[in-house]
Each structure stands twice: as structure tokens, then as C-alpha cells.
Amino acid sequence: MTELEELQQLFRDAMFGDKIALSAVGNLVRPVGGLSGEEHVRIYRQTVLGTLTRSLGNIFAVTRRLVGEQFFDAMAARYIPDAPSRSPDLADYGESFPQFIREFAPAAELPYLGDVALLEWHWHRAFHAADEPPLDSEALRAAAAEDASRIVFRLPASATLLESRFPIRRIWQINQPDYHGSDQLSLDDGGERLIVWRRLANELRIDELDDDTWQLLNGIAKGQTLEQLGDGANISLLPRCAERGWLGGFDTL
């Protein structure tokens, strides 16, 4: 290991709360002005945690609003040291945060919080998902005429199916900055089954699904053929799903 590599690993450990590393890096730094070596290093600790916390706060904006800024930042500070980022793109950071929230004891009073966070994560991913052309209905008709049993539908590349026993879509809606309607909500309103996705380049959507459509789209997400879908799900809903944009495309076996 080179000296530079050693320095960088020590510096990294100092950023995430290792006190011995912090003091060791502090000793490598020249005190300037009124600040000791360690105090200089602490400035970076603040910027590293600040950048990651801000990014999580932007992605999980509703979660942050629900628990308040201070609670959110404290929760992020607990999450970050054990959740190293593995991508140069900051937008990839935070995938495991919803699960962390579910297991974070101080947040247990808000049992829906982890589900709301998961909804926000998939919204964020839908924003960045690949563009794709709409379902080619002409090609679909031709494939169906040839051998419909060999058709395997795909959900849109941006889509995630999400189920919660809480009304997370409603919670998400009334916590949007530009929301003006009633903020009345009861946790007894029941759960929701949702598809989070993006239409064309611009239109991000969270659509609620009825039980039959949920079952059908779940079969599609599992890669079932039209024949397999017909076994348990109501395939007469397919045209409506296509119309709504919930079918991204299809392959033929």
C-alpha cells in the first residue's frame, strides 16, 4: 500500500466517526490560524456527512417532512457510516435507507415511514430510468395473430409494483410542497397497491391498482407468459393496462 493510499483510507475512516483515525489524520495536518490539525479535518467530516445527508433529504423529502429536519438528519447520521456508497453517482445512494428506517427503533411510532421512504426511492429511480418507446400495438396484434400463447409482456423500464398496509400514496400526496387540498387522512383507510412509473420522458406517476390488475401486473413482473397469466389472473384487463401505459413492451418466446 502506498503512503497516499494509507492516508486516504485513514482519512475515510476519520470521516465516518473513527476517533483514532480522526486524531491520527489531525496529527498529519498543520495547525493554521486558530484551528488545530484535528479541527481542520473535522471541517471535511462536516462536508462529507452534509453532502450525503442533503442528498438523502432530497430523495426522501416526504420522509424528512414527516419526521422533521432534526430527526431526519440524526437518522441519516446513523445510517451513513454503515452504508458505504459504491457508485460515483450520488443519485445511486440510499437504496437501503427505507429498510434501515423500518428497523430504526426511534421511528417505530410511525410504522408507515419505511413504506413511504420506499415509495420515494422508487419515484426517484423512475425519474432516472431509461427512456423507451410506447408499446407497439401494431406489432402486438401481429404477434397475437401468430401465436398469442408465446407472448411475454414487460412492465415499463421505470415501473415498480409496491404494496403497503398503509395509505402511502395519500400520505405522499398531501406532503407535496404544492399540495393544496384537504390534509385529512386516517391510517385506517387501509392499504394500497401501487405502480410507480414514468410515462414518456417527463410524466412521473403513482397509480393505484385494483386487486385484479395488481395480480395481473405481478404475474407480468414475474415474467409469466400470456398462457400462465390466464391461469390465475384476469387477462381481459390487458387492453386497459396497455391503454394506461402499464405495459412497457413484450417479447415472444
Binding site: L4, Q9, F11, M15, Y44, S85, R86, Y93
Partner: peptide, 25 residues
């Protein structure tokens, strides 16, 4: 600056020592 070490990204612009070894690297 460096933002990563051992494939762990810190997403912040961190300082390098101004040595000839660092310069060459």
C-alpha cells in the same frame, strides 16, 4: 481532489498532499 478510496465513494472533494509522489500519481 479525491472522492473515493477502496471503491468507497465519499462524494466530497477531499484534499491531496502536495508532494511530488502525489503529483506524479
Amino acid at each position: 481532489a479525491w472522492i473515493s478510496t477502496g471503491q468507497h465513494y465519499l462524494h466530497d472533494l477531499l484534499p491531496v498532499p502536495y508532494t511530488s509522489a502525489a503529483l506524479e500519481h
